[in-house]
């Protein structure tokens, strides 16, 4: 059987809210090491990769590997019934066709359980090579959210260029043009307020703003976001979820004809 208990149920709620617009369905692959998900959007332009470690849960048991096919809008409907302070336990028998979600209030005086019907999903996994990136930028996740939201109101695509001057986001549209540059800045005392640019070589790539804006739905999960860029490769937008694991979004670049 599979059983996973997380005291901060709100994390699970935020995670599903971050994913559900981007991917309609996907497999929760559970094993003794934790829970993983790899899912592409319907147009195969972006991919969500989620990895939650077994030791990040208060309790984790998985007797045999399973792929649990989840419809995220449906999971979201159930998780909306959980309180923000609730502890959430996920449970499934081996080869089950349902996932049980149990919500316990913090003072244990309210306990509810919901069964989510599982789906059979043929998922296509992509091999993502571990690699060095030309530029890795850590910045406050709220800053990333603001930049992509602001630029989405001006244009459809953004040119992201990383140089030793900083990281520049540029767009243009019917109303005009916009440029936002962030400089390497380690002045703030709190690490989560710093902008750290680790540059191996200058790089510039163009992306659809709609997706980058969608990734920012993960902002409530983490104070810092990391962007990784290499010429002619998808960008990685990564949020570390405390000690529990990470969610990474990959977006294919726009390519010149």
């Amino acid at each position: 059987m599979f059983e996973a208990r997380i005291t901060q149920g709100a994390v699970l709620k935020k995670l599903v809210e971050a994913l559900k617009e981007l991917v309609t369905e996907g497999n929760f692959d559970v094993s003794s090491t934790g829970l993983q998900l790899q899912a592409m959007d319907s147009s195969h332009v972006c991919l969500v990769s989620l990895a939650l470690r077994e030791d990040g849960f208060e309790h984790f048991r998985c007797d045999r590997n399973m792929a649990m096919g989840i419809h995220f809008q449906n999971l979201s409907k159930i998780l909306k019934c959980a309180g923000n302070e609730d502890t959430i336990t996920l449970k499934a028998e081996d080869n089950a066709d349902q996932l049980t979600l149990m919500f316990e209030s913090s003072n244990q005086d309210r306990i509810s359980d919901f069964d989510l019907k599982l789906m059979s999903i043929e998922s296509e996994h992509l091999g993502i090579p571990d690699q060095e990136y030309s530029a890795e930028i850590k910045m406050p996740s709220s800053e990333y959210q603001r930049i992509v939201r602001d630029l989405t109101s001006i244009g459809d695509t953004v040119l992201i260029s990383a140089t030793k001057e900083g990281i520049k986001f540029s767009t243009s549209g019917d109303v005009g043009t916009a440029n936002v540059t962030l400089r390497h800045n380690t002045t703030p005392e709190k690490p989560e307020e710093q902008t750290i640019i680790d540059l191996k070589e200058p790089v510039a790539l163009t992306f659809a703003l709609r997706y980058l804006n969608n990734f920012a739905k993960a902002t409530p999960l983490a104070p810092v976001v990391k962007l990784s860029l290499t010429k002619d490769l998808p960008i990685v937008v990564e949020y570390q979820i405390g000690e529990l694991g990470a969610v990474k979004f990959y977006l294919a670049p726009k390519i010149d004809d």
Partner: peptide, 14 residues
């Protein structure tokens, strides 16, 4: 005008 790349052009299917 730039075309939107698809992930399969960058990553291999397993």
């Amino acid at each position: 005008k730039a075309n939107q790349g698809r992930l399969e052009s960058f990553f291999t299917s397993l």
